[in-house]
């Protein structure tokens, strides 16, 4: 039977999730994921052609009135690096878009 998830897929998914898989982790992790994904794949046999989603709708929206927020200290006091009120991170120019 064909594998659901291989090394490449695992690495792709890990990079999406910003997790790096150590060589030691890789083997066992692949085994676990293969078994879990194999197990949940049983749903493919359920006929859902007639199912209509019944998500509820919002009962109220928020009025456009300012409310008390957090001070910079309370909100970002735990940030690893701050300068002149900005949060400082490694340069990401030209990285992922917004």
């Amino acid at each position: 039977m064909a594998m659901i998830i291989n090394k490449e897929t695992l690495e792709h998914v890990a990079s999406l999730a910003r997790l790096e898989i150590t060589p030691e982790e890789e083997g066992p992790l692949l085994g676990d994921l293969e078994r879990i994904l194999g197990y949940v794949a049983q749903l493919s046999s359920v006929d859902t052609s007639a199912i209509v989603s019944k998500r509820p709708a919002m009962t109220e929206l928020r009025p456009d009135e300012p409310s008390e927020g957090l001070t910079r200290e309370a909100g970002l006091g735990g940030a690893p690096a701050m300068r002149d009120g900005f949060v400082v991170v490694r340069n990401v120019m030209g990285g992922e878009d917004e």
Partner: peptide
């Protein structure tokens, strides 16, 4: 409920939701 005012000091219109 944070203000949308433009040009204020950095990180002064913040709350648990938008952070």
């Amino acid at each position: 409920g944070c203000s949308t005012a433009f040009g204020d000091e950095p990180n002064t219109h913040i709350c648990p939701v938008c952070l």
